[in-house]
Design a protein around this nucleic acid. Sequence first.
DNA 1: TCCCAGGGGCATC
DNA 2: GATGCCCATGGG
Length: 296
Amino acid sequence: MPLRLPTPPLFSFEEALWFLDRNLDDCMHEVSGNVVRKLLTCEGKPVLIELSSSGNAILINAVKGKITDEDAVIKYAGEWLDVDRDIAPFYRLLKKDRELTRLSVLFRGLHIVGIPDLFETLVWCIIGQQINLEFAYKVKRALVEKYGSSVGFGGKRYYLFPPPQLVAALPLEDLRALQLTMRKAEYIRGVAELFAQDLLSRKRLEALPNEEQMLNELLKIRGIGEWTANYTLMKSLRAMDRVPYGDAGINIALNRLKGIPKKNNRKEVEEVFNSFPGWKTYLVYYLWRSLRDKKV
DNA sequence: TCCCAGGGGCATC
DNA sequence: GATGCCCATGGG
């Protein structure tokens, strides 16, 4: 029997699948037809899970390995796809904006697809800084395929992200060999060391009272600036009012939708987001989604 | 050739 | 705090 994860009315599994796929060769999951597969660990052992949709629920099957902790897997899937969130209030805010209201129609039921693993999120951010996305995914794949453990299924391999302890022990040259710059190699190993020494963890961040303090904690780390800290909070900690200002995608989307200039626009961009208290993160996400839609 | 990508650190003033 | 420069690969 598959596990069942009930979905709220405004939830589209198709939109989640679209985001997970979108032709970007992400090595951390695989979309195939109407399902997505991802390798997890359950009580220390690898489990390949497969998510599909049935009526008003997501079904979770183990296609390889065993789900030994059902609650943990359901919790993981729920956080990954931000399932348990009523986005109706966000749509009510969108309706008040003439140019943005159509986002709620075009991408109806789109929820944020997160990256529950904090270490993975930070490394991914550093890899992606200032390079095009295709290349960034290539570098991530090289890292994961070289240092992540994996299981095979149906002629394919599925990977776990390399643990911080392993990355912390790598010589910088080995990271350089993945086509990372020396700077990025240093940043990534530095972050790995913080995790390995338990100076940084999801638990530590979550213990802080608010988003601002989490942001400040992340900003102390070398290699993590405003963009990365905000992105990490939105994708990994599920913070709801984060905006990675200066993001090229946000600038392009707001230029296309509202004619806001692409540069030196901080004030105008802040003004747009200030109309979405509690939902700024979702607006960012919908703007990114709009970049890959011809109708916008 | 030049500019820009889901930036950030650092020196300098 | 603002500005300029560096990192370094790949695509348009």
